[in-house]
Amino acid sequence: MVVRVVGAWWLLYVGHRNGRSLHTMLSAWDGQWMLALAGHGYDHIPPELTDAHGNISADTAYAFFPGYPMAVRALHALGPSTYAAAIMTSLVAGAVATVAAYRIGRWCAQRRWPEDQPQADRAGLIMAVLFAATPMSVVLTMAYTEAIYCAFAGWALWMILEKRWIAAGLLTACAGLTRTTAVGLIAVLLIAAFLSRRDGWRPWVGAALAPLGWLFWMVFVGIRVGTPTGWFRVQSTGWDTRFDFGAATLRYLVDTLSLNETAGDVITAWVIVATIVLIVLAFVTRLPWQVSVYGTLAASTVLLSTGLMNSRVRLLLPAFVLLTPVALALAQRSRTTQITVGAATTITSAWFGAYMLGIYPYAI
């Protein structure tokens, strides 16, 4: 709560100084697409909304998964405006995701220090703070999909760790209706269920449920576009997003760190580098394989593909479990160090989020 309040206060101030309203900033860029989908559906998109090339076709809107717009529309039906419903959905989902981050951090700490529950609780709390104060955590209060995806994915991962297979499968299916990042989560659940195949029928049911949401959207868009790879075609045509083994990310890092003078791009580049370091740390520190593999796969869907590089910090948010080694390390430090790091990350997150929404001129 404190992290969000600090971020909201600074966002209001930066918006005021730059002549931008809070309403405009929290529904900027893809937020306009989310509001249009929730308010009008996929076949009645306002003509002013276009893809990254300034074009729009009958299939352009289908690049966006339906989970978040559906949730917003359901809440809107109860009375709030579409905008209010979108922000409320993200706020609640962001809070739910933060609790999931706490549970995952505490679970990992309990396995490392089984006889020190207070330290495990501290690790969970630090994990929650780190998640809430990631550089682009402002998106958890925007009309974007990150909050609801992280809520579904975070709790699904915790259910996998706890071997609650039916709940894990259902939550993973919901995550699959929200973002394609869910393919990493689906893979982890399938592997975990296979390794527990002798535990009865529940792992099999969880594994069967897990891919349903993602597969539904792939099949639906594929039928509409007329090809099994329809969703990927829409993404590639409209937003230049395709798998390239990280070539575009590498070019961006080299160019940005050697030539770019814009704070948003330079920090984005360093966040990408930090993410790669965190992937290594996840395995070096021997986190539970479910956490390491999911974090790596979630980050890989971003780092190994082309697309708008300016949005990489936001797109990496679903890989928040990679922060677990940092949380575990801080849990062993003094209270002063923990408070100092928490305050520093909160202030940095507030500044960066407000900068990217209120000052940075490009899409995020």
Rank of each mutant, 00 (worst) to 15 (best):
V3Q: 08
R4D: 05
A8Q: 08
W9P: 00
L12V: 09
Y13D: 14
Y13V: 14
G15S: 08
L22C: 03
H23G: 01
T24M: 02
M25N: 01
L26S: 05
L26T: 10
W29N: 11
W29C: 00
D30C: 11
M34L: 13
A36Q: 12
A36H: 10
G39K: 05
H40W: 01
I45A: 07
P47Y: 07
P47F: 11
L49I: 13
H53K: 15
I56N: 09
F64I: 07
F65N: 02
G67V: 05
Y68I: 11
P69G: 02
M70R: 06
L78P: 00
P80Q: 09
P80N: 08
S81P: 02
Y83S: 08
Y83C: 04
A86M: 10
I87H: 01
A93K: 03
A95G: 15
R106E: 13
A109I: 12
W113P: 01
P114F: 09
Q119I: 10
A120K: 10
R122Q: 12
A123Q: 10
A123T: 08
G124N: 07
A128L: 11
A128E: 06
F131Y: 14
A132P: 03
A132L: 06
A132V: 05
T134E: 11
V139Y: 07
A143T: 13
T145V: 12
A147N: 14
A147R: 13
I148V: 15
Y149K: 03
Y149M: 12
F152D: 00
A153F: 02
W155A: 01
W155N: 01
A156G: 08
I160F: 05
L161C: 12
E162V: 03
I166S: 01
L170K: 02
T172E: 00
T172H: 00
T178E: 04
T180P: 04
T181Q: 14
A182W: 04
I191T: 06
I191W: 10
A192Q: 07
A192W: 02
F194R: 08
F194G: 08
D199P: 00
R202K: 15
P203L: 07
A207L: 07
A207K: 06
A207C: 09
L209W: 03
A210M: 06
L215G: 09
W217F: 10
V219F: 08
F220A: 14
V221N: 02
I223D: 14
R224W: 08
V225Q: 10
W231M: 12
F232S: 15
R233T: 12
D240S: 14
A247K: 11
A247P: 00
A248W: 06
T249P: 00
T249I: 02
T249D: 04
V254G: 01
V254Q: 12
S258V: 01
L259I: 03
N260G: 03
T262L: 07
G264M: 15
G264S: 15
D265F: 13
V273Y: 04
I276L: 15
V277Q: 06
V277N: 05
L278A: 13
V280C: 12
A298T: 14
A299V: 08
S300A: 15
T306Q: 13
T306K: 11
L308P: 04
S311T: 14
L315G: 02
L315E: 10
L317K: 00
P318H: 10
V321Y: 01
L322K: 04
T324P: 03
T324V: 14
A327G: 08
A331E: 10
Q332H: 04
R333D: 09
A343K: 01
A343I: 15
A344T: 09
S349F: 06
W351V: 08
G358R: 08
I359P: 00
I359Q: 11
A363R: 13
